[in-house]
């Protein structure tokens, strides 16, 4: 599975971006998106489109954790969202690696596997992403409490980045 994680401010500006690959089941943590070179802007584009869905879904549930809210079939990408109290959105695009689907030939066989690196919609994956989001949320609150961080500005702290990478490695 490859991941693209982005934090989006209430004014729809990205504050923090990270791409990484799975570290579970012998994964090396390197992202391998199916759309290759175009992934960098395509992922942004897909997630940006998903923001509209967030605006619809966020009123239907009292939870901050909104689970998978959108998907983009051409690259088999799924987008999960976590909403903070001030309408900051943590968006995670997750995309199972191309090799498994290519060899399996169909999506049904991918879904039969429940392991986190393979199946983007299994309960295990959902739980792992929820844990990841919660951990990032905690880190995020700590970052906000830093007097030298200005609300609404991109997060440049290397410590924050390093810890988010750590959370990704731990859960995803």
């Amino acid at each position: 599975m490859s991941y693209y994680f982005v934090i989006i401010s209430p004014a729809d500006t990205p504050l923090f971006e990270l791409t990484f690959g799975t570290s579970k089941a012998g994964g090396d943590g390197v992202p391998r998106f199916r759309n290759g070179e175009t992934a960098r802007y395509m992922n942004q584009f897909i997630v940006h489109a998903a923001l509209d869905v967030v605006e619809e879904v966020q009123w239907l549930s009292p939870n901050m954790w909104l689970k998978v809210i959108d998907n983009y079939a051409p690259t088999n990408s799924h987008i999960s969202c976590f909403l903070t109290g001030t309408n900051v959105r943590f968006m995670l695009l997750h995309q199972p690696s191309a090799i498994t689907t290519a060899s399996a030939g169909s999506r049904s066989s991918t879904i039969s596997s429940t392991s986190i690196p393979q199946n983007p919609t299994s309960p295990q994956t959902e739980e792992a992403i929820r844990q990841f989001m919660n951990e990032v949320f905690e880190l995020w609150v700590k970052t906000l409490m830093n007097p030298f961080y200005t609300i609404g500005k991109p997060i440049k702290s290397p410590v924050f980045r390093q810890r988010v990478v750590g959370a990704g490695r731990k859960w995803l």
Binding site: N146, P147, F148, Y149, K156, S157, V159
Partner: peptide
């Protein structure tokens, strides 16, 4: 100094 990270 809790939560503090010096400007980078």
């Amino acid at each position: 100094a809790d939560f503090v990270e010096l400007p980078d």
